[in-house]
């Protein structure tokens, strides 16, 4: 089979819908948090309404959707806020998820692009996630839609296309590796004193509290700096695990080694620790929450189900029941 036909066949693969559903729920909550906290802080009009109507900045006509709706007036902006929060709720509940993701995406872009001074990379990552949810049938299970269709919240027989999840994995790899390749500061790269994280923690803009108390732990921040830099620039190696797992059952050499190492685990563990540390020590908005939502997609639904079974058996002190096989996908092959 030529490479194009191989690709076409690969993209026809399906899998149980649980992982994409969990991603949908997590991103729906991130939408509610990203916009809801602006409402609660009383910042909707100061940040997103034009100066003529009470905002602090000249915003012009705004991005295409806002311009089309009539410009950044209070009525238009509050309408977008309401639509975004409503679609975030529908996305979390899982009803009309593709449409809800599309509305949330346009709402998030419309609002956050209004005033680019008042945002960060998390707005772009949230938009990336919502577009991938437009492409995914993420409400096939763990959703109100599933409940209405089958009478149950979950549908173990539901199968969805695998490729949206693969694009979610790619997005995560791109975020980390791209930021890693751009960390060329002398404070980050080998040859310096690896003091980047120490000095970043001292920046008043992002710290939660004054961080001078961390001085005795400076060597730890140096270690964390070196590890973070290595971890980010080497993150594409995670893709190698996916390559290895797609090979024949009886693999040899590199493939076998990569399967045994399963780089997803150490990379996810380090990333989770880093994001939890960031959450505790700094306020950089919902970036950590959105990024951690992508971590779910590193695992095939069968793997997550297996972990769930083990946790349940551990909690009830009973040996885990044997796993029922997933119903076969369209190509008969569970995806990587």
């Amino acid at each position: 089979m030529n490479p194009w036909r191989r690709l076409v066949a690969m993209l026809a693969e399906t899998e149980p819908g649980s992982v994409q559903a969990l991603f949908r729920i997590a991103i729906g909550l991130c939408v509610l948090g990203a916009v809801g906290t602006v409402v609660v802080a009383g910042l909707v009009e100061p940040l997103w309404v034009d100066r003529t109507f009470g905002g602090y900045r000249d915003l012009g006509r705004g991005p295409w959707l806002v311009a089309w709706l009539g410009g950044p007036t209070p009525r238009v902006v509050w309408g977008l806020v309401a639509a975004t929060l409503a679609s975030g709720t529908l996305l979390t509940l899982g009803i009309g998820s593709r449409g809800a993701a599309l509305v949330a995406l346009q709402g998030v872009m419309g609002l956050t692009w209004l005033n680019g001074h008042a945002g960060g990379s998390y707005d772009e990552l949230l938009a990336n996630a919502l577009w991938l949810l437009v492409l995914s049938r993420s409400d096939a299970t763990l959703s109100l839609s599933c409940r209405l269709r089958t009478g149950a919240w979950t549908d173990p027989t539901a199968r969805v296309a695998s490729w949206p999840r693969w694009l979610m994995v790619l997005q995560l790899v791109v975020v980390y590796s791209s930021t890693g390749f751009q960390k060329v500061s002398s404070y980050w790269v080998p040859g310096g004193d690896f003091s980047a994280l120490w000095y970043i923690l001292q920046q008043p803009s992002w710290q939660r509290v004054d961080m001078r108390w961390a001085a005795p732990f400076f060597p730890l921040t140096q270690l964390a700096t070196a590890l973070t830099w290595c971890w980010e620039i080497s993150y594409p190696l995670v893709l190698a695990t996916f390559w290895a797992r797609r090979g024949p059952d009886r693999a040899n050499g590199l493939r076998q080694l990569l399967r045994r190492l399963d780089l997803r685990r150490p990379y996810a563990l380090f990333g989770a620790l880093m994001h939890v540390g960031t959450l505790l020590l700094m306020n950089v908005g919902p970036f950590s929450a959105i990024t951690l939502s992508f971590y779910l997609t590193l695992w095939h639904p069968d793997e997550l189900r297996s972990v769930g079974r083990r946790l349940r058996s551990w909690a009830t002190a009973r040996p885990p029941a044997p796993a029922p096989p997933s119903p076969p996908g369209r190509t008969g092959r569970p995806a990587a």
């Binding site: 772009e124 060329v184 980050w188």
Partner: peptide
């Protein structure tokens, strides 16, 4: 990028700001 939100920009903490301003 404009309509599907697929834009990518990941220059996060690429260098510590050694002379930041405190408001």
């Amino acid at each position: 990028y404009q309509y599907a939100g697929a834009w990518q920009s990941w220059r996060m903490f690429v260098a510590p700001h050694r002379y930041p301003g405190r408001l």
